[in-house]
Amino acid sequence: MSDIEQPAGELWGREGFREDPYVTAETLEEAGDAPAVILPLGAWLGLTEETRNASNRKIGVLVAPGESIEPLLPLLDSIPVIALQFPAFNDGRSYSKAELIKNQHHFKGELRAVGDVLIDQVAYMLRTGFDTMKVNHAVTLNRLAGHNLHDVPGYYQPGRGSHTASGTYSWRRVPGA
């Protein structure tokens, strides 16, 4: 949330930091011959089916909080990565979208959080179904490097990366696959 140009950030998932094969571009042309590209929703929807499914290139889609995911739902099988945006940490719309995409519509590809990703939200993101986060906030990077997720020992609702706790109420979960 600062005016300073942020570095591109590092990609993080439950297993730790990883290489990001994707470049982000406004259009396919702008991406040149990059083998993996993330395009804004409008541009992505404008692609032909043939281009989307081309085997030599992966094309993911970036969705802003105000944009509807409805048009993507019938096409989920052809999308390698969906990046949901958090323009500010307190804009929570993408959490509900993650829930819908992953848990209601069973998206099998990578679900990614981009934007204002802070340490206090990482655990929430994982639980709603995000696989990866693009992080450029220094404190958050540090904490993630130290595996300090700021998490709690039990959850009061079902979610990804947790399982039913035995001998307790149906809505409760404990961390772990």
Partner: peptide, 17 residues
């Protein structure tokens, strides 16, 4: 009480409008 538990640190609903 059930609602209190279910809403505690709800991952989807902690950043509502």
């Amino acid at each position: 009480e059930i609602l209190r538990q279910w809403s505690s640190m709800h991952p989807e609903f902690s950043y509502l409008p």
